[in-house]
Nucleic acid binder design. Structure first.
Lengths: 221, 221
DNA sequence: ATAATTGTTTAGATGAACCTAAATTAGTAA
DNA sequence: TTACTAATTTAGGTTCATCTAAACAATTAT
């Protein structure tokens, strides 16, 4: 009785309400939603009424919306799918395409919990997507992982590259050249006082990265 | 001017018309389409009018439809996506899920030619999907590959397992056990007169499969 | 050839998701 | 407070994809 199928559009609304709720910590306004959905306020009002009827949001006229527990769970499932597909896309093809996000916007609506769970397994249970955003678990709970930049890590700490901040082709090409990518394991060997560059041990080899690079690479926890 | 975006529904109609055209070699009837789309004849008539206006089908009232070249190309692109995703699903997870086809039905509508081309590359340019159906190329042309069952191959011929006919869990489990899967390379060593079983060389090791198994495994060309 | 059957199309409605324009409410400034 | 502005909702329409029921065309059987 719980598992009402949601339309693609409804899923998108929930996802956006979730995001806005996180940002402003509270009620979400009609206009804010209209902006992000590329629709008009009137259309949003319509939809909020419908979502309210399905008990996915708490909606009081003129006062904005919040998600119900059920709505939040649905939103998190969509976000989970989106982020896992993002990992998949980057994994399969590198950061090459600007379009990754757009494609993930479509893939996030593929219905099959099993598929997404299997995807997660194949990808090695990544805690975050390539933007460093945490991936909700199969129960629809958002873990509070945080990204830590190599620049800020202690000497002797180990980790695995989980993503990059700067996604310009120039930077990505350089990373590729020096053999650093998503999943690369490393250990912080030393930090050079002089220029704040960082010495890494990557599978036995010493690799030195500049401060700029160390500011743009992150691991998790 | 050519690249009108099609709705998911329109894509499905084209795909189904293509399939029916292949089967009956000629005009496709309204009712046949209605059956496969799980809609009613009246809805099909409506849609055919719309597709006709977009010059994707040739439609004459009471006389059935055929695809135009443009419509055929669109249909083949959908089929290409569907079959590549099927390969992906089986690749990632084995035949485990009955639901593979349903999931591919959704994935086939993901818009991104680049993604599907990249997928094809990652999968190693498979000529057929796991059901042995050929995969149209990036230009929207259907190659005429045909499946050949191991039962019918000559001694000394080599090949690669491209799919299975029987997809019952029992059979798939057995294949798994004897180490045969999609992509497995083999050479036909001999055929045993007595029971028509087939001796294979699989990466240096002799494997014997029964007539029944050899009737259900195929390669291509 | 005519009648009966089957297949197909039209007419008129529906629901989802959107729109514009007008009305309403909430919040702010005089 | 009252008047004004900005945000929101309602009213009334549109398009897409569907439906049912009725009308119409084509095919088959007598």
């Amino acid at each position: 009785m719980n598992e009402q199928e949601l339309s693609l559009t409804e899923e998108n609304y929930l996802k956006i309400i979730y995001k806005l709720e996180m940002e402003h910590k509270g009620e979400v306004t009609t206009n804010a939603i209209a902006d992000l959905t590329n629709t008009k306020a009137a259309s949003v009002s319509d939809m909020l009424k419908r979502l309210s009827q399905k008990v996915l949001v708490n909606y009081i006229k003129y006062q904005g919306v919040t998600l119900t527990p059920e709505g939040r769970k649905k939103a998190l499932m969509v976000i989970r799918k989106h982020r896992l597909w993002e990992v998949f896309l980057v994994d399969q093809r590198g950061y090459s395409l600007e379009a990754d996000h757009e494609i993930a916007e479509q893939l996030e609506h593929i219905e099959s919990l099993q598929l997404v769970d299997q995807l997660e397994k194949v990808l090695g249970y990544p805690p975050v997507d390539p933007h460093g955003d945490p991936i909700p678990n199969a129960k629809g709970e958002m873990p509070n992982k945080k990204q830590i930049f190599l620049k800020d890590m202690q000497i002797n700490q180990k980790g695995q590259i989980m993503g990059v901040k700067d996604t310009s082709p120039l930077f990505l090409k350089y990373l590729d050249k020096i053999g650093i990518g998503i999943g690369t394991e490393f250990e912080i060997i030393d930090r050079v006082e002089y220029d704040q560059s960082v010495e890494l041990n990557i599978s036995g080899r010493l690799t030195i990265i500049s401060k700029e690079v160390a500011q743009n690479l992150f691991t998790i926890e």
